[in-house]
Simulated scan of single mutants.
Amino acid sequence: MARFTCLLAGPIHPTPALRATVAGTRVVAADAGIRHAAALGLRPELWVGDFDSEPDAAVGAGIARQVLPRDKAETDGELAIAAAVERGATSILLVGAFGGRSDHAFSHLVVALREAEAGREIELFDGRERAWPLTADGFPHRFDAAPGAQFSLLKFSDLAGLSIEGARFPLDGVALPFSSILTQSNEATGPVTVTLASGRAVLLLQADPAVR
């Protein structure tokens, strides 16, 4: 498996957990995401973007660049993911996908769902929050979580056949409309298992405070 980290421009918290997660991965930086490389002990093999948000070129000195036009249909993050896929990525970690501009965070979640539906393993992690797109295949998917960790299921459509185990508020095969907020602010009692028959959603998990 070729595991890649894509460094995006949102804020990060370089916790031991995040450092351990990115260790040993190949790295592509998207524009201002290059700023996270030093804090995480990483050296990207490629730096992509229109470079409208990273004024200090010295930060990425010696790293191969793919310069993109400012007016384009794709975001720098999308093109960083595409570059990783072209290099054989089968597993992708997005770092710096949360915080910053809300529209950017939303687009990263949508892109993550799209990549998961294309059959790629994808995760988002900034040191304090982790997220995984859910595969609507009717099979249980297990996510490691410490007892007491807060999590939410962010819906991007109506959901059907949703079950949640290992939580203070479990669910069993329910159907939920997009407008429902029933899946917000749950609490793990240990590893969380989610099953989804149809729909689009992302599991957002708060990191264990003990590992910050």
Rank of each mutant, 00 (worst) to 15 (best):
L93D: 00
A20D: 07
P209N: 07
T135K: 10
A39N: 00
T90I: 03
S198T: 12
R43G: 08
W47G: 02
R128C: 15
E129P: 00
I92A: 13
V59C: 11
A38K: 11
F151I: 10
A201R: 08
V27P: 01
P11I: 11
E115W: 11
A105V: 04
R142Q: 15
Q66C: 12
L134D: 10
A175N: 03
F51D: 02
A29G: 04
A89S: 05
A136N: 13
A73K: 12
V111C: 06
F143T: 12
I122Y: 09
A32Q: 05
F106E: 04
R101V: 13
L205W: 02
T135W: 05
F98T: 08
M1L: 15
A61G: 14
M1C: 15
C6T: 14
E45W: 08
R114G: 11
P44Q: 05
A131N: 07
L94A: 14
T189Q: 03
D56K: 05
E123W: 08
A32L: 05
M1H: 15
L176N: 11
G190Q: 14
T189A: 03
G166I: 14
P170A: 12
P11K: 13
N186W: 13
K72R: 12
L176S: 05
A64Q: 06
D137Q: 04
E54Q: 13
E45R: 03
A80D: 06
S102G: 07
G10K: 01
I34N: 03
G199R: 10
L182V: 09
A38H: 13
G127A: 07
V22N: 01
A145E: 04
Q66A: 12
A97R: 03
A82G: 01
P55N: 07
A23F: 00
T193I: 05
R200T: 04
L113H: 08
F151L: 11
G161K: 01
I63Q: 03
S180Q: 08
G199P: 13
R19A: 09
A118K: 13
H36Q: 05
V192C: 06
R70L: 09
R114E: 11
A210L: 09
Q206C: 11
L153D: 00
L93E: 01
D144I: 09
A112Q: 10
C6Y: 05
E86R: 15
T5C: 13
R128N: 15
E129G: 00
E129I: 06
G166K: 10
R212I: 15
I164R: 07
A105I: 02
Q150F: 03
E123F: 01
R65S: 07
R114W: 07
L171H: 15
A23W: 00
D76P: 14
L134K: 05
L124W: 01
T25H: 11
V194I: 14
K72Q: 04
C6N: 02
S91N: 12
L7F: 03
L176V: 06
R65Q: 14
A20Y: 00
K155F: 07
F98S: 04
L124K: 01
E123L: 07
L182A: 14
L7T: 00
T25N: 04
L8N: 05
K155T: 14
H141Q: 13
A9S: 15
F4K: 03
S91P: 03
